[in-house]
Design a protein around this nucleic acid. Structure first.
Lengths: 237, 237
DNA sequence: ATGAAACCTGACCAAACGGTCAGGAAGACG
DNA sequence: CGTCTTCCTGACCGTTTGGTCAGGTTTCAT
């Protein structure tokens, strides 16, 4: 590996107050977190090539050489950023599995993905950039983890359709539609921002967008065809 | 200006056969087209920074210095590529206006945008890249042309809603959903390709996706097409 | 034919970038 | 205190890249 100068795992004390004394291992973790945050922002805004280690170091408030002390190469840093994002998405994806009710499962999944776009737009942008450029770093994730996740979810949707609980739409296209729409609010937030009179979406505007997306998709797949706003939430399983 | 060494507009003859003799002005136009096509591909695959004039020249089959004879700077070439794409989208946007029937207008618009994603995926990717990176080159387009187009279309949708021809959804969110979903098939085609067992979507698969997108959105906004066979509105789960 | 304009190209350059390195500062531990 | 390890940094280097330039070749009107 040699990405980092190895963690010696000293762990001298439980460190009751992380912000005051900052023992060695905590200071290291904190600095890594700082660099990763800066890297996420810069990679999102400029892409892999456009981002420079100098810019990332500046945003993290450290000299470039120090950044290379924590992450030996630009690519190692980038890969760590992408993996963090993928993990967040995988966690959110589990909201899909928590119940067997199509209405609730879809509502929760779409809401979770919209919330991630709101809270981690930079991560989504890095992912988008990576796919746009043919996934030179994360192709293996696409082929394994994402592929398996997609296949199992498609099976679930197909079962719901067979059981007459959804209209017979193409499940794969539905998933792509959900991904595309929810991530659009992160990846294209600059365009949305511009079209909103130069102001970022307010919380109320974003909630309305989220509700609209949920409403259109649920109605679109034949769930609760009439009720668009009548939030009456049936019993859970 | 000085982007090009100015077109002297000689136009020596009507040039009845463009492919044979290639008079001056035609050869120039042809070379420019070749460069622009190569540039679109390379910019789409590598982003603005990742693309190099050397790579573009290679793909166009000309020396780098010759490329700079036609386009003085990388940025001028990039801007030309982006403007071409925007024009294609604007043309497609007109399909929205050709009729006052929400079902037909939406169907035609979505279909047109899906077809563009199929036929000009590289252009869509360049646009996506530009928005991801905060539109450093085309911010003015967003603020003027795109903003005006969006506002007028929103007014049309609001009228349809007021006339009871559509469910009362948020028109802006609907437009974003259409953009996101249709462009997803271009911008994320590498991911789609990977999730399709490494094969690009066949024409049949793509047609099915297009129909699914149209069906979900039409049903989602409360328009009952003659299409979808099952699930007429009315049944509450 | 002939000269001018347009077109083409190998060789080159300055700037920017990723990454290295030698050496200094700061904490840990006896 | 001394010394060992970790952490930090200015200065530097080889490569890549956008763009230039001098000079050659082709086209075309006269």
């Amino acid at each position: 590996m040699s990405d980092k100068p190895q963690t010696p795992t000293p762990l001298p004390a439980p460190a009751t107050d992380p912000s005051a004394q900052t023992p060695r291992s905590l200071a290291r973790a904190e600095t890594e977190r700082l660099i990763l945050k800066a890297a996420e922002d810069v990679f999102a805004e400029y892409g892999f090539k456009g981002a420079t280690t100098g810019k990332i170091a500046d945003r993290a408030g450290i000299p470039k050489a120090n950044l290379h002390y924590y992450f030996s190469t630009k690519e190692a840093l980038y890969r760590q950023v992408v993996e963090n994002i993928f993990q967040i998405w995988l966690d959110a994806a589990n909201t899909f599995d928590d119940c067997d009710n199509p209405e609730e499962a879809l509502t929760r999944y779409i809401s979770a993905k919209m919330d991630i776009s709101r809270q981690h737009p930079m991560g989504s942008k890095v992912w988008a950039n990576e796919i746009l450029h043919k996934a030179p770093v994360i192709q293996d994730y696409l082929e394994t983890t994402l592929g398996e996740w997609t296949d199992t979810r498609i099976a679930v949707i197909e079962r719901w359709i067979a059981e007459g609980r959804m209209a017979p739409i193409d499940p794969r296209s539905l998933l792509y539609m959900i991904w595309a729409t929810t991530q659009h609010y992160a990846d294209f937030n600059h365009q949305i921002h511009t079209l909103n009179n130069g102001e970022p979406l307010s919380d109320a505007q974003f909630e309305r967008a989220k509700e609209t997306v949920v409403a259109i998709i649920l109605a679109g797949v034949g769930i609760r065809p009439a009720g668009l706003e009548t939030k009456q939430n049936g019993g859970r399983a």
